[in-house]
Amino acid sequence: MMEVRFSGFGGQGIVRCALITGKAISLYDNKFATMTQSFGPEARGGACSSQLVVSESRVLYPYVTVPGVLVALSQEAYNLYEPELGNGGILIVEQDLVKQKPDTGRVQVFPVPATRFAEELGNRLFANLVVIGFFAAVTKCVTPDAVKKALPELVPGRFLKANIQAFDKGYSYGNEIMAAKSGASVMADAMSEGVE
């Protein structure tokens, strides 16, 4: 079982990240995914977060407890959620927006210039798809095929192609990073004990 938290500030497409990934996993990757998010005025602006619990069998407890993966796209989100990331967990940060604490080796850090990549593709709004691509490559939690199948109803039709490009960009960048890490599985430490 894998617990994932996507976090950032309002407008970065944080909820959409979890929706796309959750839909891809549960509809097209033949696994179970439960997605939750914070609601209400307290959840608008400031640090925004959405959560995904992924499992080979039915998810029971719907919320994340000790996330194995944290995606932090803003400084505030990083400050708030990094401490709860499990030991050995995967931390994906937007490297241009998050200034990290000195690395103690507690967690595995994967920086990605998602916003810059998205801007190169024409619009910073695609940054969340770059992140999903990068996330897919690093965690192997979701397959690229499944994400591409999940996209059509979740992004505006006229931006579908651009979103797929953004995903591919993040995915190939993620693969480069992983190849540099000589293929060692980063997942083992990030998995939590699931209920089968």
Binding site: M35, F39, V59
Partner: peptide, 10 residues
Amino acid sequence: DETVGHMHEK
């Protein structure tokens, strides 16, 4: 309830 109402699943 709010949890079931707001959580996404298949």
